[in-house]
Every structure is written in structure tokens, then in C-alpha cells.
């Protein structure tokens, strides 16, 4: 534990002094945090607090102004060849609030395309793998459907399968259930829970406090671009330390 190499090995993601501004407006202020391997972290906080921005900086969909985010032992925000960046990104699964499935491709092609095009997996192998993943998210029978024919919950499960197809060691979720009708939230959370149970390292921005309570190992509470509190769900929900977190939780209960 004490040697630096081992410590680095334990951390899937390490965020150091990350700051970001839009013009003069600071969105993220000197964020420091890390995600350990196999850990499930839920990021919560009021809207506009920078949650989505923070999670999007981790695979560099958003640039930062200063700081570093190390993944695979490398700073993903360091200057690097785009090919290198693409390779790093392919090892970070990302699930969007608005699913962003590819509407021109069938469900199975949505899942199989990136392994084929990015990793050079043989098409028949990729398709077999895609069918297995679709089975896992409970949608094997929709393999030949198009995204437009699926419900929101089904689309989001396909999006999870699509991200998993790249075999990423880490999965990021950016409000994966916020765009769903209430009755579809459960099916998506169930898939996420099963992923967590299998030991996937996960970082989720979500307003689903039930999920946070049941599944998260730790909760990061974000407000106005700062992490005000990092705590286990038990601590966070029973005895939030920061007054802002206390107020946030009180507002949720009303």
C-alpha cells in the first residue's frame, strides 16, 4: 500500500486540481478526488453544480483549464497524439443522458460497430459478442430492431451494452435515467446494479438517491464547482457534514 506504484495501481481515476472556466465563469474549482478500482462512485449535487462537466472531463469530451486526470497511469489531458487519446477514450465507457444511439444502425450494429471499426475485431466475432451483451441487458430479441423502435429504457440499455462492447475497465454514467419516463428508470438501474455487482469501476452522475444508497461505495457531493463532501452513503444520508449537503438532502425529502 505504501509504495507509489501500488497506490497508483489501486486508482482507476485520479483527478488532481482540475479547474475549468467558461469565459470568466468557473465551472470546476480545483477538484481533487480519486476512484479506486472496483469502486462505485455516485456524484450528486444541485443542478448547475458542474457534475456533468466534471464527468465529461474524465474522457476529455470537455477540456480543462488546469490540473490533470490520470487514467491507466496517464494524464488524459496531457498533450498527446489524437490516436493516443482515441485509444484512451476507447477504454472509458460513457453512457449519456440522451442515449445517443446511432439511429441509422440496427441495435446489434450499434453495439458491434465500434469494436469492429476502432479495435479491428472481426465482424462475426463482434456480432456474437454484441448478441451476448444484448442478452445481458435483456434485449437479445431486439437485436435487429432500430433505435427508433425502442422505448427510452430499452435505448439506454442498448447504450450500456454498446459501451461495454469496448470492454472498458471503467464506466461513466452521465444522468443515465434523467431522460426516462419513471416506469423505465428501474430497468436501467437494474442493469447498472448488476454491473456494479460484477465489480465494474463506475462513476455515475445521478439524482437516483435510492441507487446511491444501495449501490454506491462513496458519494461525491458537488456544489458550485467544488466537491464539498466525500462520504459513504450511510454517512452522507444520515449525517451529512457540510451545511450545503444537509440543505440539499432536506430539499430532496420535500
Amino acid at each position: 500500500m505504501s509504495t507509489p506504484e501500488l497506490q497508483q495501481d489501486l486508482h482507476a481515476i485520479r483527478i488532481s486540481k482540475v479547474s475549468k472556466r467558461y469565459g470568466d465563469f468557473p465551472v470546476l474549482k480545483e477538484i481533487n478526488a480519486e476512484v479506486t478500482r472496483g469502486e462505485v462512485v455516485v456524484i450528486c449535487g444541485p443542478s448547475g453544480s458542474g457534475k456533468s462537466t466534471l464527468i465529461r472531463t474524465i474522457n476529455r469530451l470537455e477540456e480543462i483549464n488546469s490540473g490533470s486526470i490520470s487514467f491507466d497511469g496517464r494524464d488524459i489531458h496531457a498533450p498527446m497524439k489524437t490516436r493516443e487519446l482515441n485509444r484512451m477514450r476507447s477504454r472509458i465507457g460513457f453512457v449519456f443522458q440522451s442515449f445517443n444511439l446511432f439511429p441509422h444502425l440496427s441495435v446489434v450494429d450499434n453495439v458491434a460497430m465500434s469494436p469492429i471499426r476502432v479495435k479491428g475485431v472481426a465482424p462475426d466475432v463482434a456480432h456474437k459478442k454484441a448478441l451476448l451483451l444484448l442478452d445481458r441487458v435483456g434485449l437479445a430479441d431486439k437485436a435487429n430492431a432500430y433505435p427508433g423502435q425502442l422505448s427510452g429504457g430499452q435505448q439506454q440499455r442498448v447504450a450500456i451494452a454498446r459501451a461495454l462492447a469496448m470492454e472498458p475497465p471503467v464506466m461513466l454514467f452521465d444522468e443515465p435515467t434523467s431522460a426516462l419516463d419513471p416506469e423505465m428508470v428501474g430497468e436501467v438501474l437494474a442493469v447498472m446494479k448488476s454491473l456494479a455487482a460484477e465489480g465494474m469501476t463506475m462513476l455515475c452522475v445521478t439524482h437516483e438517491m435510492g441507487f446511491a444508497r444501495d449501490v454506491a461505495d462513496r458519494i461525491w457531493f458537488l456544489d458550485a464547482g467544488q466537491i464539498l463532501e466525500i462520504a459513504t452513503p450511510e454517512e452522507f444520508f444520515k449525517h451529512p457534514r457540510h451545511p450545503r449537503a444537509q440543505r440539499f438532502l432536506a430539499d430532496l425529502r420535500h
Partner: peptide, 25 residues
């Protein structure tokens, strides 16, 4: 931007995303 984000997040290059995801649509 969603389609480009999705392509990039999966590791496609800019031109690869254009070719396989954006332009077909």
C-alpha cells in the same frame, strides 16, 4: 453534438465518426 460525442467517447477518430456515424445520417 450528441452523435459526435458518442462516437468520440467510443474511441472513434473525428474523421471516423464523420464517416461511419455523422455523414450516413
Amino acid at each position: 453534438n450528441g452523435q459526435m460525442d458518442a462516437g468520440r467517447a467510443l474511441g472513434h477518430s473525428y474523421l471516423g465518426t464523420m464517416r461511419y456515424i455523422i455523414l450516413p445520417q
